[in-house]
Simulated assay, not measured.
Amino acid sequence: MSPTNIFKFRPATLAAGDDRWFVEAWDSTLPYLASIGSTSQWQYIPSNIPGAVSKVKKMVEDSDICAKKYPIASPKILSGNGVPPLDWDKAYVAEIDVKKEDVPIALADKYSNEHGETVTIPVGAMVLMARSPEYVRAVIPEQDENDPFIYLSFLMTDHRAGGLAKGSGSALLSIAKEEVKSLGLKRLCGDCWRGNGRRLVGYYDGQGLKAIGDFDVPKNEQDSWEGAVTEWRA
């Protein structure tokens, strides 16, 4: 597939079964991470962990609720001091239209019964929140009244889609930046694994999200998950 893949975007919803697809796509990242020496980024298969499955379902559910409560991304939803409401959540799916004959083998069975010559395949996902997760708060607060932000809590590519997913991460990040601007804010933050020579940190740097601090999340008495908080400014 051409590197100039053309994506379309929609909100993730429980009705569309996106919570199940999120988990399947998350599972698909493990072989890829192993191939680039980043096995320690994720050491478990999400679909085998009830807590991970529940976490993903809640992401999509919270986005559904937010879409009803805050249907329009506007500065009008900000508080008097310009801070977004902490219950603001938005999950996105990036999709691509492709001829049936070009569907990757890993997904062929799933789309074999679709009608028509063209099918729409989800290839990437993103979750935005108006608060930082607890594990990064040594670097960044839950929210900053003096410098408010939207937080990128989840960004993923479905590796079963192969070349069809190429560029979807960058495209989703562009949507995230537009969300920040639509809300009248100027700051997008997020975090990522910093192991394997900070390879993933370098990816986000190339997308305009610069590292602003490192953190460690203990996994056991001897080991920890190494992370970095990143930031983009409009």
Rank of each mutant, 00 (worst) to 15 (best):
D205E: 15
S74Q: 04
V123M: 01
I121K: 11
Y111F: 15
E61W: 12
Y151E: 01
C189M: 11
G169T: 00
I150G: 03
H115W: 10
I77P: 14
I150W: 01
G116P: 08
P85C: 04
D27G: 07
D109Q: 13
K99C: 01
Y204S: 02
Q207C: 14
A15H: 12
Y135V: 07
I77Y: 15
K68R: 14
A25F: 02
R194T: 13
E145I: 05
T157K: 13
A15D: 14
D18S: 01
R199K: 09
A176W: 05
V201H: 06
N220H: 00
S132T: 13
Y44E: 05
R10Y: 04
S112C: 07
G202D: 03
S38E: 12
S224H: 14
N146A: 02
K210Y: 06
S40M: 05
L128F: 08
T13F: 09
R10E: 12
Y204M: 00
K110F: 00
H159K: 12
E101N: 02
L172T: 04
L209W: 02
G169F: 00
H115F: 14
L33I: 05
W42E: 08
G197W: 07
I49V: 14
A108S: 13
I36F: 00
G184N: 06
C192A: 05
G202C: 02
W21P: 00
R187Y: 02
I105C: 12
T13I: 08
G162A: 02
W42S: 05
